[in-house]
């Protein structure tokens, strides 16, 4: 909770408002782009839910790291939401193309979309795990903790997205 107190008392309003506006504009742009390409309400709801959950999980991860593991959430952790957002965008973007290619079918096969999403989720998770595992060996201290936390949140969000796809994209 010290983390939130620090933000409330020591951040300038300009800083807080600029960051909030930044995230809102990014969400609006991504939702607009997804709507333009897919014209699917389900996809819009899925995208918004995914981004809101990524924000929530990032904050929860910070709280758990701070309270349970006594990790100081310092300035470098401002990058975590940006990295999680970028990877989330890539993950959703990978499925948008597939969906767009198949949406013109009379009865789009949601099973195929779910399978494609599973394949993408597996690839991204394995790629991130291998990249970070090999790289973390050479790090220590703050850098190690930051990358480990960010990596975990990113992988969790990848599978949360897969869970959301299973909920939102069912065959009628």
């Amino acid at each position: 909770m010290e983390m939130f107190k620090h933000v409330i008392y020591n951040w300038s309003i300009y800083q807080t408002v600029a960051l909030l506006v930044m995230f809102l504009i990014i969400l609006a742009v991504i939702v607009a782009a997804v709507w333009y390409l897919t014209k699917s309400k389900k996809y819009i709801v899925f995208t918004i839910t995914s981004f809101l959950l990524s924000t929530l999980f990032t904050l929860v991860a910070f709280l758990i790291a701070n309270l349970l593991f006594k990790v100081t959430i310092s300035y470098i952790y401002l990058l975590t939401p940006i990295i999680v957002l970028t990877v989330n965008l890539m993950h959703i973007g990978m499925s948008v193309g597939f969906y767009t290619a198949h949406k013109m079918q009379k009865n789009p096969d949601m099973t195929a979309i779910r399978k494609e999403f599973l394949r993408d989720s597996l690839q991204i998770s394995i790629f991130i795990v291998l990249l970070l595992a090999s790289f973390l060996i050479f790090l220590s201290g703050k850098a190690f903790t930051f990358l480990l936390l960010t990596g975990i949140v990113t992988i969790v969000m990848t599978w949360v997205n897969f869970g959301l796809v299973k909920c939102f994209f069912k065959n009628d």
């Binding site: 990014i26 742009v29 991504i30 782009a33 390409l37 957002l85 970028t86 965008l89 890539m90 973007g93 990978m94 499925s95 948008v96 193309g97 597939f98 767009t100 290619a101 993408d120 690839q123």
Partner: peptide
């Protein structure tokens, strides 16, 4: 790996960043 999403990924990432 996802050639059909390439444009969305490139332009989307650049705009967000």
């Amino acid at each position: 790996e996802n050639r059909d999403s390439e444009i969305f990924l490139v332009i989307g990432s650049i705009v967000v960043l």
